[in-house]
């Protein structure tokens, strides 16, 4: 599933958190797309995503998939960012005793997501951490 070409073409979104704002209705799409899901508009401008947001829902995965087993247990949340866009991301640096709650403020940080053994690629992207 992971390939060098895929990793390369996703750099703008994964590394720089670039999103697309519909110039017709203003809805912001992350990742960018060709058709607006709200108004079917087809013209967009590139906008940067904010790093700050709050937890909408979350889980702790005790049986992680291939590529993530060394990170078990894996905290994952849907985070609503300050611009209203929701993203699914891991929550990093959460001690076991620290209970996440819906509404908790978080901030996105650039981190290593996983390694792909066969292709030797290391994938980077954003994870949420508690905002202090």
């Amino acid at each position: 599933m992971f390939s060098p070409a895929r990793s390369w073409r996703e750099f703008p979104q994964r590394y720089r958190l670039e999103a697309a704002r519909c110039t017709v209705c203003g809805k912001i799409h992350y990742p960018p797309r060709l058709v607006c899901s709200a108004c079917r508009g087809r013209t967009f401008e590139t906008v940067a995503m904010p790093r700050e947001g709050a937890v909408v829902t979350f889980t702790t995965i005790h049986v992680p998939p291939k590529g993530f087993t060394e990170q078990s247990p894996l905290d994952i949340a849907i985070v609503e960012l300050a611009n209203g866009v929701r993203v699914m991301v891991q929550v990093a640096d959460l001690p076991e005793a620290d209970e996440l709650r819906i509404g908790d403020p978080v901030r996105l940080e650039f981190r290593r997501i996983c390694d792909d053994g066969e292709a030797g690629l290391i994938f980077y992207g954003h994870k949420a951490v508690r905002a202090r």
């Binding site: 995965i61 998939p65 590529g67 994952i76 891991q90 819906i102």
Partner: peptide
């Protein structure tokens, strides 16, 4: 788990390590 996971959005959900129990767990929490 990988095969079942391919029913999720691989590029924007699977990428972060989500599993199907994880997706339904987030719905359960909501």
């Amino acid at each position: 788990t990988y095969a079942l996971g391919s029913a999720a959005d691989q590029e924007w959900e699977g990428f972060h390590g989500i599993t199907f129990p994880g997706l339904y767990a987030m719905m359960a929490r909501a």
